[in-house]
Amino acid sequence: MKGILDFSYMIESVPAIAKGIPVSISIAVVAFGFGIVIGLIGALAKIYNIPVLKQITAVYVSFIRGTPLLVQIFLSYYGIPLVIRYFNFQYGTEWNISFIPAIYFIYVAFSLNAGAYLTETIRSAILSVDRGQIEASYSVGMTTYQSLKRIILPQALKVGLPNIGNQFIALLKDTSLAFAASVPEIIGMAKIIAGRTSQFFEVYIVAALMYWAICIVLERAMALLETRLRRNERGVQNDRN
């Protein structure tokens, strides 16, 4: 045995594993996009006490937070085809389940998962905005929608950004679970490659370094965005005159 690690094999395996990077990122981005929309609706339903929607949100958030993501992936992966089959049978539709790529079930599971956590994050961010800001916008005759869009949400975003950013990073790392639905993301690719040579340790180190590198980039980006959003705490727009 030459040593603990076979470095040349690690370097060789990089291009093949890297093919999983776009898949991992696409899962994170799609889930985050839908998650923000679901989270915003859920948060507003809770804050404005919208009947029915509020109760649905409560059960949904509780279920997602109370079950492992892996289980949610399985439920989506095995459950959605069943539902489609039922529709085909009941309503005579002819959707072909085998033509739906597995990644769509992953998108559904991850979007619902992200949406539940983002509901709480966005809710607390909105509630952190001073009540006086809402009253002031109402006092000049703005509608609830205008007040949310122009005054409340921009301020909530500033407060919520560190948390939302953390959630995106966590989400990106969670995409490693998608291999369970045989989606070829970073870990999925790593498993395929290592399966040929049984050099699992090397391959997983390469995968770990890839996640780490992506997360470092994300952290930087988040820090930049935060500084930009915090510009109005410096007191003056652009330069001080």
């Binding site: 001073d130 002031a136 109402y138 000049v140 005759g141 703005m142 005054i151 500033k158």
Partner: peptide
């Protein structure tokens, strides 16, 4: 009613994400 009344609050309640001039222009 709100569009035909103006209000000045004890704690000012200026829009924190807007400059002085934008606060006035907002409505």
């Amino acid at each position: 009613v709100r569009r035909s009344t103006g209000m000045v609050f004890q704690n000012y309640n200026l829009f924190a994400n807007k400059t002085a001039i934008e606060n006035i222009a907002e409505a």
